[in-house]
Design a protein around this nucleic acid. Structure first.
Lengths: 214, 214
DNA sequence: TAGATTGTTAATCGATTAACAATC
DNA sequence: TAGATTGTTAATCGATTAACAATC
């Protein structure tokens, strides 16, 4: 691996797409893939793919292409998917429940180890064999179960305090679905999703279409 | 509005964040906000905000700032949130069900008008007053209910055929949660979310941290 | 008026695309 | 060998940041 190259955020965001597509290809039985064809399947230019991959090493064979299985393994290692990550979901509402049941995460090496909620009715239940704990036990259970990543699916007004508790309890990454800006220390990796952004951006484009059509 | 300026994708993706924050400010009773303070709340530089807004018009007052209510109305209009959009959810699995129950959409002007699923057990049920129809009736119901946007939450292998049906039935936008690249005609606005991207990107950074710490 | 803050132009930075030598 | 395709450097494009005149 090349050590001193700065890898762009854009590249890192494309890697999961490469991984996903390589896995599909592998399932289909493909052994070799060119950047041309891979690009077509992903919706990215072949140059982009070659450039992205080249910041991590030389994975292809000139005049031939990339070996699907080998490239998948390499991209998987770059993404840290060769090891297992323990995650906890905080907030068993509709979204938290959907994520707790999402089988895809497991196949990527993410293991849900705990779920937290304040609702007494939910505490003690099991979702896919994972126990639901009272939020008050978060500080105790996060280190006990060696949780690396916390997923926040609580209402916006509670998100910051949940984030603070997760950080204090020792998680190293937070995946936030509450529509607020969270403040966390520098060393914590925070990714926020806002589900209304996608829909709103569709709304933007559709309104323009109507104007254009006038 | 300025007509001939090309607005960058990055700008459009930030607008929903501006809108969300302005709404919070308004609920807090703030009447005026500077780009400086707004930037702090959103996590964006003040220059960025002024630049973004200036592609649509002059919404601020020099030496003063922006009137919260007025700016919110303007950004809302830019995003097409001043009108109502009818949406349909295809696939009432865990995720589809979470989206169907997500109250936030309603407050932005998105009205869920229909839900489709193949499961006979689910057909006929109601989620928040919205009826669940058999997928076979999609072609009939989309135009009847004047659905503008279709949300795809079916398993990956069925996503393309659902997209085709939605397009044929007349939707103009598709919000896709299935982890596959969908092909749709040029005039259809497609936004794809892949929930595993966020988690995988956290995994990438956490693996690096470990290496750095060695 | 003086202080504050916008809107906009110019400078910088970063990411994508094009081109092509290296080589399988 | 000839054809194909990578890896990489250079050129282009686009987005962000800095600076400041305009003006409330």
């Amino acid at each position: 691996m090349k050590e001193h190259i700065v890898i762009s955020k854009a590249t890192i965001d494309r890697l999961p797409l490469y991984f996903r597509t390589l896995r599909t290809l592998q399932e289909e039985g493909a052994e070799i893939i060119s950047s041309e064809e891979l690009g077509r399947r992903i919706g990215v230019t072949p140059e982009q793919i070659r450039k992205d991959l080249s910041s991590f090493g030389e994975f292809g064979k000139k005049g031939v292409g990339y070996y699907v299985r080998e490239l998948m393994r390499n991209v998987g290692e770059i993404l840290g998917l060769h090891r297992n990550w323990n995650i906890a979901i905080v907030g068993l509402g509709h979204l938290g429940s959907a994520l707790a049941n999402y089988r895809n995460f497991v196949s990527l090496g993410f293991n849900i180890k705990a779920i937290f909620d304040v609702d007494r009715e939910k505490v003690g239940q099991h979702i896919q064999d994972v126990e639901v704990y009272s939020l008050s036990r978060l500080t105790e259970i996060i280190p006990a179960k060696n949780i690396h990543i916390g997923v926040i699916t609580v209402p916006a007004q509670f998100a910051q305090q949940v984030a603070d508790k997760l950080v204090a309890a020792g998680v190293r990454g937070i995946w936030n679905f509450a529509p607020v800006k969270l403040n966390v220390p520098e060393h914590i990796r925070l990714i926020s999703e806002d589900l209304s952004v996608g829909l709103t951006s569709i709304s933007y484009y559709l309104s323009r279409q109507l104007i254009d059509e006038d």
